[in-house]
Simulated assay, not measured.
Amino acid sequence: MPATVKKVLHWLLWGFIIYAVVTNPDRAADIVRAIWDIISQGVLNIGRFFGNIVNG
């Protein structure tokens, strides 16, 4: 993908994020919280997986 296309997509993404936060901050916070929960649960589960492998 050309650099100009990446740059335009990058700015569009940030523009959408700013728009979403300004127009509906409560919903934007809920989305960020949900994404954080998914990531943190994934990291915990990976840790449990490797802990079970090590501890047998």
Rank of each mutant, 00 (worst) to 15 (best):
T4H: 01
K6L: 12
V22S: 06
A3N: 15
R27H: 11
L12P: 02
P25W: 04
V54E: 05
D37R: 08
G47W: 01
N45C: 09
A20R: 07
V43S: 05
A29M: 15
K7P: 00
D30A: 14
T23Q: 02
K6W: 10
A20W: 11
M1H: 10
W11I: 02
P2D: 14
K7W: 12
H10W: 14
I38H: 03
G42K: 10
I31N: 05
I35C: 00
G56A: 01
W11P: 01
S40F: 01
Y19K: 06
D37K: 00
N24L: 02
A28K: 05
D30S: 15
R48C: 04
T23C: 06
D30H: 12
M1W: 07
F50V: 13
A29L: 15
V21H: 01
T23L: 05
W11T: 15
G56I: 11
I35W: 05
G51D: 13
I38K: 03
W36G: 02
N52R: 08
R48F: 14
G56N: 05
I31C: 00
A28F: 05
H10A: 01
I35D: 03
F16S: 00
I35H: 08
I18V: 15
A20V: 09
K6Q: 02
L12T: 12
L44Y: 08
V5W: 12
N45H: 08
I53A: 06
